[in-house]
Amino acid sequence: MPELADRPPSAAGRRGPKIVGFLCDWAVASQGLVRDDGTMRDLPNVTLIKIPCSGFTRPAWLEFALRNGADGVFVCGCPLGDCFNRYGNNLIGDRVEQLRRRLERQKVNPERIGALFYGKHAGAAFVDAVRAFSDRVAGMPGPAFPPRKPAPAAAGPASAAPRTGPAAQDGQAGAPAGREGT
């Protein structure tokens, strides 16, 4: 496998791809699923961050995670139509779709961003879905974002920047540099 050497280590790490998940407090119950450090018991490469509602997630945070070494990010909310906060999961579903389209224009595989919807007692199905997501991401080459150092690659995100708005740009400021290689 000669081409493996060219790949940055993040995607081809021994424990699988690095995945960050945002988990709604009211969706899948995290007791028994998560270790103390936030990684999932069955999938140590997946770290879950608890949030008050899936709609709380800013799409910019998903992009932030991808730019900082995560190979995949997902948001998990309650089943569509049954959000504890009425529309949070529908909203994040739409926002994830928009983010996927936006990042696809920046040559990021949109499959790296996921939206899952599982209820409080659907822990097993949730783990299966995350495993499937992780496996899918594991099959993708390279880091989520092309390295910034070469000049032609840097033009991509810069030209798309006005679309994300000034604030979203602020959110990524200082983030990408230096950490691409981890």
């Binding site: 509602c53 906060n85 949070g88 909203l91 994300t164 604030a167």
Partner: peptide
């Protein structure tokens, strides 16, 4: 305190004080 407004705001003008 669901934070849906935080997710809605692309200008970082909303925050949950302890998150």
């Amino acid at each position: 305190e669901c934070g849906i407004c935080v997710g809605a705001c692309p200008f970082e003008a909303l925050e949950l004080p302890r998150l």
